[in-house]
C-alpha cells in the first residue's frame, strides 16, 4: 500500500478552479494536494515504518505458500516427536515453545504442528477478510454518505437515521448470533464475516462522507459546475468525489485495523473461519487452554495481531496528518 491512490486520485482533480480545496491555498502554485501529502508523509518516519510493515505483511500473505515451502512445514502436518511425552504430552520439547531453526515460531502444544506455517497462512485469513470487509464498507459508506450529503432533505434524514440504527445494534452479540445460525463451511463463513464486518462498519465512513459532502455542496466550484449545466451525476463523480478522496482514503485505512481486530475477535469466540483454515484469533483461543504450560503459543499469534493492527494504525495516523492541513504537527 503505497501512496499511489492519493496521488493519482487527486492528480485527476479536474478543472483548475477547485485545485485548491481545504487549506492547500498556502501551497506553491502547481503542487497538488496529493503531492504535498506525499512530501509530508516522506518525512514521517513512523508512518513510513507502518507502511513498510503493511507492504511486508501483504507480501507474506500473497506468497505464503512459497515462504512456507522454504521456512515452514505443511500446515496440518503433525510433529508428535516435538512434544514432551513426560509432561502429559502437552508442551513442546525445549524452551520457548519449541522454537528452533527448524520451527521458527515453535510448535503447537499436543499436535506439534508448525506454528510458523499457521501464522503465515493465518495472515491470509486475517487480511483477506479485513480488506474485503473494508472495501465493502467503503463502497456502501461512500454511496450512502454522498447521497445523503448531496441530496439533503428527507433523503439525508432517512439515511442518517438508518446509520444511527446500524450503530445501535449490539455489534459483536449480533454478529456471533447470526454467524452461529448459518452453515459453518469455510466459504460461507468468510462471506458472512465479510458481510457482517463490512455491513456494520460502513456507517463510520458514511457519516464522515456525508458531513464532507454536506459542506462541499455549498462551495462555489459546485455552484459553478451547476451554472454551466453539469448534471447531478457529473457533479458527484467529477467534482465531489475527487475532493472526498482524501478523507475516504484516511478513514478506510483507519477502519482496516478495527476490522482485523473484529475478525480476530470473532475467531477467538469460535465463530470465525472453521478449522483447518488457520486463523490468528482461533490460535489465541486455543492457546487459552495451554498458556500456563506454553506461553509462547499465546504470545506469537497475539503479537502477530498486535503488529498488524499497529502498523495500520500508524500508517493511517500518518496519512491523516499528511492529508489534513489542520493537523497538529
Amino acid at each position: 500500500m503505497t501512496l499511489g491512490p492519493v496521488t493519482s486520485s487527486t492528480d485527476v482533480t479536474p478543472p483548475a478552479g477547485e485545485e485548491a480545496p481545504v487549506g492547500s491555498g498556502k501551497a506553491i502554485e502547481g503542487r497538488s494536494l496529493g503531492r504535498i501529502a506525499w512530501t509530508r508523509l516522506k518525512r514521517d518516519r513512523v508512518a513510513l515504518t507502518g507502511g513498510g510493515v503493511i507492504i511486508f505483511l501483504i507480501l507474506v500473505a500473497i506468497f505464503a505458500p512459497i515462504i512456507n515451502k522454504f521456512l515452514g512445514h505443511p500446515v496440518n502436518e503433525y510433529h508428535q516427536d516435538k512434544i514432551d511425552p513426560n509432561l502429559g504430552g502437552i508442551p513442546p520439547v525445549g524452551t520457548w515453545g519449541g522454537i528452533s531453526s527448524e520451527f521458527l515460531f515453535g510448535v503447537q502444544p499436543v499436535t506439534g504442528r508448525d506454528l510458523f506455517s499457521q501464522i503465515i497462512y493465518g495472515s491470509q485469513t486475517s487480511l483477506l477478510i479485513a480488506l474485503l470487509a473494508t472495501l465493502l464498507a467503503v463502497v456502501i459508506g461512500v454511496v450512502v454518505g454522498i447521497t445523503a450529503g448531496f441530496y439533503g432533505g428527507w433523503v439525508d434524514s432517512l439515511f442518517s437515521r438508518f446509520m444511527d440504527l446500524i450503530l445501535a445494534f449490539p455489534l459483536i452479540l449480533f454478529a456471533i448470533a447470526l454467524i452461529s445460525v448459518l452453515p459453518p463451511t469455510t466459504g460461507v463463513r468468510i462471506a458472512v464475516m465479510v458481510f457482517i464486518i463490512g455491513g456494520f462498519s460502513w456507517p463510520y465512513i458514511g457519516r464522515i462522507v456525508r458531513g464532507q459532502a454536506l459542506s462541499l455542496r455549498e462551495r462555489e466550484f459546485i455552484e459553478a459546475a451547476r451554472s454551466i449545466g453539469a448534471g447531478n451525476f457529473r457533479i458527484i463523480f467529477r467534482e465531489l468525489l475527487p475532493n472526498l478522496a482524501a478523507p475516504i482514503l484516511v478513514y478506510s485505512t483507519l477502519i482496516i485495523p478495527t476490522n482485523i481486530l473484529f475478525e480476530a475477535a470473532l475467531s477467538f469466540l469460535g465463530v470465525g473461519v472453521p478449522p483447518p483454515t488457520p486463523s490468528w484469533g482461533r490460535l489465541l483461543s486455543d492457546a487459552v487452554n495451554f498458556y500456563e504450560y506454553d506461553p509462547m503459543y499465546m504470545v506469537i499469534p497475539g503479537m502477530a495481531i498486535f503488529i498488524t493492527v499497529l502498523a495500520f494504525n500508524l500508517f493511517g495516523d500518518g496519512l491523516r496528518d499528511a492529508l489534513d492541513p489542520k493537523s497538529n504537527r
Binding site: L284, Y291, L310
Partner: peptide, 22 residues
Amino acid sequence: ALAGVSLPIYFTGLLAQLWFVH
C-alpha cells in the same frame, strides 16, 4: 495509547492472567 488501541483485549487479558495470576 497507540499500542493500547492496537492490542486485542483477549491478548492483553491472557498476558495479564499469565503474569499476575499464574
